[in-house]
Every structure is written in structure tokens, then in C-alpha cells.
């Protein structure tokens, strides 16, 4: 929002006044770090994650680079940017592959995060890569959830396995796996109902699905607009399901998406893909460097640094 004009200009005003002084002190760095902290909090990075992060960056900044620099603001942004990028991991748009097909992918997440849409996008991506995916409709709760998946499957020409909404999702998943084997489908994508991470009964259901189909890939679908709760959500899902990756959705919006950092920090799982729209197009790979500059709100800053 408006308050977040830009980290660059904020850092400039921190360091601007010491032009005359000519030397960056530890106090100056501390003041700069307060600005970095605010920037990250405004981007919805979890405050605990911010705390650790700031401590690390401060150490590096005071260590050497900044104090000696003529452009301390730039150096700090550069350090922050690099640390953030590193924190979010390398580009990892790779899916696990089962030794013996089908590879089973399970989608999980809060209500409305974008699981069903991401399932269809994933199926399309695989299909375009020459694979034969099968979608399984395991959300029996949300009104018309099955219909939604069937429509999407129809749009992209990927079959959808469904047993209606009267059969237990665990059984649906199990039978879908059998069906995939029988039909020679090499990927099975299981769409599950949205649920709160504190809903014990529904989390137990996910564990049972997990147990029944032994997925090769368990993807947590996270809405990029999520706030501070991202940490608790990711942690609980990870504890119960041993996640293997994250899909960050709705990045076509204007959110800074600080949750990307939080989620990665607490689960250690790579963010494998991002969702960039409502239309069913293949999921896109995640770029940590782009995400870092987005979170810092400085898309064009990077080119400046590169030129410097």
C-alpha cells in the first residue's frame, strides 16, 4: 500500500544525511535495518521469520561491506535481496517421478486457496509434456466441487475420476489409483477439499488418503495474499503430511507475497510452482530472485544494482 513507497527511498533518507559525515556507523546500519524490517512486515513476511532474517543481514552488513561503501543503501538492498533469494531456494520446478508409474500427486490446502485450479493447471502442464494425467475428485463437501473439476478437465481434455459425493474420499483416492493403473495413466493428481489446519477430523482424512495412495508428491497450495497465519498453516500441514512442495497461487494480483518466505522458512519445502491467473494454463516455475524483488517492492531496482 501507499505506506510502502519504496525501500530504496527509505534507505536513501537514512543514509542521505550522512553524506557530510562520510562514514557509516553501526547506528546507521541499525536504523536502516528498521526500515528493512518494516518493508518485510508490510509485505506480510511472518514477524518471527523477519526477526531471524534481520539478525542475519545485520551481521553481514556490519561485518564489512556496508561500512566501507560509498553507497550503503544499495549495498544493504543488495545483501537483503541476495539473502532473500537464497532463503527461498533455487528454481525447482521439478516434480517427483515414481519408479513405477503412476506418479501420485496430492493437493492440499485451506479453503479457496486454489487447489482445484492448480490441479487442472498441473494436469495441463503434464499433458503438454507428453504425459497422460488423471484427475481425481476427492472433494465431496464443497457444493459443485466435483462439477468444477469435471468442467476444467473437460476444457483441457484430461479425464476426471469421480465416484460422486456419497463415497468416502479415501476410497475415491484408492480407486482412482487403481483406475490410473488400469488405464495406463502415468500421473494421478488428487484434488482434495479445502480445510483448516486445525480441523482434526478433516486433517485425519488427509492422512488416510496419504496412507492409502502413498503419494510421491504432496503439494501445499497457498494463496499469495495470505498474511501472518501462513506460518501456522504451513507448519501444521507439514507436520501431518510431510509436504514435498508448495504451489503459490494468485500471484497475478498486486500482493507482495511475503508468505512465500514464511512458508519456505518453516517447512523447508521448495516452492515448486506459481499460479498466475484463473485461466487454465500450465503452472509456472517459481523464480526466487523475482519473488525477492517483488517482496521488496523494487522490480526495477535490480537492474540499477546490476548497472552500478
Amino acid at each position: 500500500m501507499a505506506a510502502f513507497e519504496s525501500l530504496t527511498s527509505r534507505l536513501q533518507s537514512v543514509f542521505g544525511k550522512l553524506r557530510g559525515k562520510g562514514k557509516v556507523t553501526e547506528d546507521d546500519v541499525n536504523e536502516a535495518m528498521r526500515e528493512v524490517r518494516l518493508a518485510l512486515l508490510e509485505a506480510d513476511v511472518n514477524f518471527k521469520v523477519v526477526k531471524d532474517f534481520i539478525a542475519r543481514v545485520k551481521e553481514r552488513a556490519i561485518g564489512q561491506e556496508v561500512v566501507k561503501s560509498f553507497t550503503p543503501g544499495m549495498v544493504i538492498i543488495d545483501i537483503v535481496n541476495k539473502e532473500l533469494t537464497e532463503l527461498m531456494g533455487g528454481t525447482q520446478a521439478k516434480l517427483a517421478k515414481a519408479a513405477k508409474p503412476p506418479t501420485v500427486i496430492m493437493m492440499a490446502g485451506l479453503q479457496g486457496a486454489g487447489k482445484t485450479t492448480a490441479s487442472a493447471k498441473l494436469a495441463l502442464m503434464l499433458q503438454k509434456g507428453g504425459h497422460k494425467p488423471l484427475l481425481a475428485a476427492c472433494d465431496i463437501y464443497r457444493p459443485a466441487a466435483i462439477k468444477q473439476l469435471q468442467v476444467l478437465g473437460g476444457q483441457i481434455g484430461v479425464p476426471v475420476f469421480s465416484l460422486g459425493d456419497k463415497v468416502n474420499p479415501v476410497d475415491i483416492a484408492r480407486q482412482a489409483l487403481q483406475h490410473a493403473k488400469d488405464e495406463g495413466r502415468d500421473y494421478l493428481i488428487i484434488d482434495t477439499a479445502g480445510r483448516l489446519h486445525i480441523d482434526e477430523a478433516l486433517m485425519e482424512e488427509l492422512r488416510q488418503i496419504h496412507e492409502a495412495v502413498k503419494p510421491d508428491e504432496v503439494l501445499l497450495v497457498v494463496d499469495a495474499m495470505i498474511g501472518q497465519e501462513a506460518v501456522n498453516v504451513a507448519q501444521s500441514f507439514h507436520e501431518q503430511l510431510e509436504l514435498t512442495g508448495i504451489v503459490l497461487t494468485k500471484l497475478d494480483g498486486d500482493t507482495r507475497g511475503g508468505a512465500a518466505i514464511s512458508v519456505k522458512a518453516v517447512t523447508g519445502c521448495p516452492i515448486k510452482f506459481v499460479g498466475m491467473g484463473e485461466k487454465i494454463e500450465p503452472l509456472e516455475p517459481f523464480h526466487p530472485d523475482r519473488m525477492a524483488s517483488r517482496i521488496l517492492g523494487m522490480g526495477d531496482m535490480l537492474s540499477l544494482i546490476e548497472k552500478a
Binding site: E42, A43, D44, L110, M225, I226, G227, T255, R256, A259
Partner: peptide, 14 residues
Amino acid sequence: LDATTGQNALSQAK
């Protein structure tokens, strides 16, 4: 508005 939403909610409201 989804209660789990972070600061983007302000931009939404506006």
C-alpha cells in the same frame, strides 16, 4: 474478505 488475508486486504477494500 478472507480473515487469513494479509495487508493486501487494504488494497482490495480501496
